[in-house]
């Protein structure tokens, strides 16, 4: 049976993930965004490692390590590098003010809980009660994307969505088949690099990466 220490660890890490979601919404500095994202990815990787320990499925260890290396180290560094290189202003400039954003995210979390409740009762995984938090992560990531103006913050929003999806995989099925998991990591890495390159090009062409000026195309 599940050892209570592991259960505590899983619950604590899940709570940290939800907390970092809210910190991302609340932070007003670009630098802290990447740091918080790195912490979130670290917590997620640790959670995967606990699950690997509990279930004895060795391939989840690989997933956990990859997740930490990629999303807690490489990608945040790349984004920091891009931010310095483009010389983005350090403020986040939200379209929705921070207190309002936090309220909306609280509502999103409640919604995620209600949507996933029937699924959580169905689930047999030791982590099935984390499903609500993973769903909330996906939705909060999307909210970040639509409510922040810079191309870089949109990338971070997308990464939070991605973390949420990864978390959902852990909470329902522990993980996906190894080859799929590797492919997804590859796509995420390539995706971030390509988006970074486009952010460079947008900055060069418009002299800004404020995506709200991308309004040239309409019917």
């Amino acid at each position: 049976m599940l050892n209570s220490l592991s259960l505590d660890a899983i619950n604590t890490l899940a709570a940290i993930i939800l907390l970092t979601d809210f910190m991302l919404v609340a932070s007003s500095r670009m630098r802290s965004l990447t740091r918080i994202f790195a912490i979130q990815s670290l917590a997620l990787g640790a959670l995967a490692a606990v699950v690997a320990f509990e279930t004895g499925a060795e391939h989840i260890y690989i997933v956990a390590v990859l997740s930490i290396v990629l999303k807690a180290v490489i990608i945040p560094r790349f984004i920091d590098y891009a931010t310095t290189k483009i010389q983005v202003k350090r403020e986040v400039e939200p379209l929705v003010k921070i207190p309002g954003s936090l309220l909306i995210c609280a509502a999103i979390t409640l919604l995620a809980y209600f949507v996933t409740e029937p699924l959580m009762q169905q689930g047999t995984a030791i982590t099935s009660n984390c499903l609500a938090i993973s769903f909330a992560s996906v939705l909060i990531g999307m909210f970040l994307m639509v409510s922040r103006r810079k191309a870089i913050t949109e990338i971070i929003g997308l990464l939070v969505v991605e973390n949420g999806v990864f978390f959902a995989a852990i909470s329902t099925t522990y993980s996906m088949p190894m080859i799929v998991e590797l492919g997804v990591f590859f796509d995420v890495l390539v995706g971030v690099i390509i988006m970074g390159l486009f952010a460079f090009r947008i900055n060069r062409t418009f002299d800004s990466i404020d995506t709200s000026i991308l309004r040239g195309l309409k019917d």
Partner: peptide, 17 residues
């Protein structure tokens, strides 16, 4: 061009979500 970059960015972001 500006419009091509705009289209590509929208395409990347919307389809990635």
């Amino acid at each position: 061009k500006g419009t091509s970059l705009e289209a590509a960015w929208k395409y990347l972001i919307i389809c990635s979500i």
